[in-house]
């Protein structure tokens, strides 16, 4: 009869350990939407960079002062929409599970996500202002991947492998810079949708 009590104890221990140390209400939907916004952003960026060129000939990435501004605006809008979707779906999920949205797990997750991410953002901004446009897309992938790997200790396990994939994609596109935007669309768009769907299916039931 004690057997059952100890079995329950072990279950409780595991449950409390994971609830107290990991943020588990991450919504798969937020990943799917972030991916869709990223694809939209990548398409808009593609149109801006390669605009007004003959479709049949070899095309150059043309970046002028104005198009640089357009690109920045596209990037900011994409970022804002993705973060907005993330906050919306995740807080909805958290309320559903009767957990607090803003507790120490959330804080710890966000801080650990932010350290590599903000560093990367500043690095990219500096390089952008110095005119190194081509390596921005690969670098955002790499820093985003590092941020995910760093934050994965405090949330669902899937985040870690997603981070590693982003890093690898970033390194590949750094080598083949001409495909930067394409790989960026795969990393931020397709991968988010794939992982979002996977997590939605796995944790929804």
């Amino acid at each position: 009869m004690n057997q059952n009590k100890y079995l329950r104890d072990l279950q409780d221990i595991k449950d409390i350990m994971s609830r107290s140390s990991r943020f588990i209400s991450l919504s798969g939907l937020s990943g799917i939407f972030a991916g869709l916004f990223a694809l939209g952003g990548a398409y808009a960026a593609y149109q801006t960079v390669y605009s007004g060129q003959d479709y049949l000939n070899h095309r150059y990435a043309v970046i002028t002062r104005e198009s640089l501004m357009t690109l920045l605006i596209i990037a900011l809008v994409t970022l804002a929409l993705s973060i907005g979707a993330g906050i919306f779906f995740t807080s909805r999920e958290t309320r559903k599970q009767n957990e607090k949205v803003w507790d120490h797990q959330t804080r710890r997750l966000l801080i650990n996500l932010a350290i590599p991410l903000v560093t990367g953002g500043i690095v990219c901004l500096i390089l952008l202002l110095k005119g190194f446009v081509g390596i921005i897309a690969p670098l955002t992938l790499i820093f985003y991947g590092l941020a995910l790997v760093n934050a994965s200790k405090y949330t669902l396990n899937e985040v870690r492998s997603l981070g590693i994939i982003e890093i690898v994609l970033g390194l590949i596109s750094l080598q083949f810079i001409g495909y930067g935007l394409l790989v960026w669309a795969i990393g931020f768009g397709v991968m988010h949708i794939v992982y979002g769907t996977m997590m939605q299916l796995k944790y929804k039931s």
Binding site: D9, M17, S21, K100, D103
Partner: peptide, 25 residues
């Protein structure tokens, strides 16, 4: 049960404050 819960939570966290423990358990 409560003491078991307190220990489970504290071994996987550097620290927790009183309210965090209260909500958790």
């Amino acid at each position: 049960k409560v003491r078991l819960g307190i220990m489970s939570a504290l071994v996987v966290n550097d620290y927790l404050d009183f309210n965090a423990l209260k909500e958790l358990l």
